[in-house]
């Protein structure tokens, strides 16, 4: 497989998985976003920061259409980005991943990355709908979120490499090591500083559909890149071990 083919299949895989993510979000997350923004508007009217006028709703409709129309496009852009990271990691690690064939190896890695780069950070810093989140703390929250992802990502690489050097049941020690690292990070890292003022059932339902959306990306990207790799990498073959 040529380098250009590798780059192209990685980008197409990420873009397609991002399209799936954006479409799923459009179908199941948008209703919750509308509901949350509706509460935000009510709060603006109650506090006197905005008036319930035709002009307000005209302006609201115009930017909500812009925001909604960006859902799928942003899904593709995010898919290209995360798909690129997935492609790099898969390209470098595929021969050491468990799995009978290249598709199962890619799926294994996508599940691993979903778990370590998304689900574990989500447990500490879960997604929030628009009514939750102070503009003043957005930089702090971004630093905390990214730091947690980096700790989890680097942690899993270190402990995965360690597990390869251990034999038999000792390999489970690396799993314990990763879990220990994340427990320490979970306790040591500050919580999200913003108070949740929205109804908890709305927040929890939003978080649930948000997880489904992101999971649709990671579920798709592994399968798609694995299938492309199988088709285009003619150097793959079966060897005795």
């Amino acid at each position: 497989m040529k380098t250009l083919v590798f780059i192209v299949i990685v980008l197409i895989s990420g873009g397609l998985a991002g399209l799936v993510h954006g479409t799923v979000n459009f179908a199941i997350v948008e209703p919750y976003l509308d509901q949350a923004i509706g509460l935000e508007n009510e709060s603006l009217f109650a506090s006197g920061e905005a008036e319930d006028t035709l002009e307000f709703w005209a302006e609201y409709e115009s930017y909500r259409i812009w925001q909604k129309s960006g859902q799928v496009l942003a899904g593709v852009i995010l898919g290209l980005a995360m798909g690129s990271l997935f492609g790099i990691v898969f390209g470098l690690s595929r021969n050491s991943l468990p799995g009978k064939n290249v598709v199962s190896k890619a799926v294994f890695l996508s599940v691993l990355m979903w778990f370590t780069l998304y689900l574990i950070p989500f447990l500490k810093y879960p997604a929030n709908p628009p009514t939750v989140g102070d503009g003043e703390t957005v930089v702090l929250r971004a630093i905390l979120y990214v730091s947690f992802i980096i700790i989890s990502g680097i942690g899993v690489v270190i402990f995965y490499k360690l597990s390869k050097k251990l034999n038999g049941n000792k390999r489970y020690l690396s799993l314990v090591g990763y879990a220990g690292l994340m427990v320490v990070a979970f306790i040591a890292m500050p919580d999200n500083p913003d108070e949740i003022t929205a109804p908890m059932n709305l927040v929890n339902e939003f978080r649930f559909v948000s997880v489904l959306g992101v999971s649709s990306f990671w579920g798709s990207v592994g399968i798609i890149l694995g299938l492309f790799w199988k088709k285009f990498d003619k150097t793959s073959n079966l060897e005795d071990s």
Binding site: M1, T3, F6, I7, V10, L11, I77, L78, L80, A81, M82, S84, L85, G87, I88, G91, L92, R94, N95, G99, K100, N101, V102, K105, W229, D233, T235, S236, N237, L238, E239, D240, S241
Partner: peptide, 25 residues
């Protein structure tokens, strides 16, 4: 029997994809 691929990922590919990753994110 295990499936092994001999394709080596080039530094150019890693750099290009890393740029897409950082910019897109």
């Amino acid at each position: 029997q295990i499936n092994k691929s001999k394709f080596a990922v080039s530094k150019v590919a890693i750099l290009a994809l890393a740029i897409v990753f950082a910019a897109g994110l």
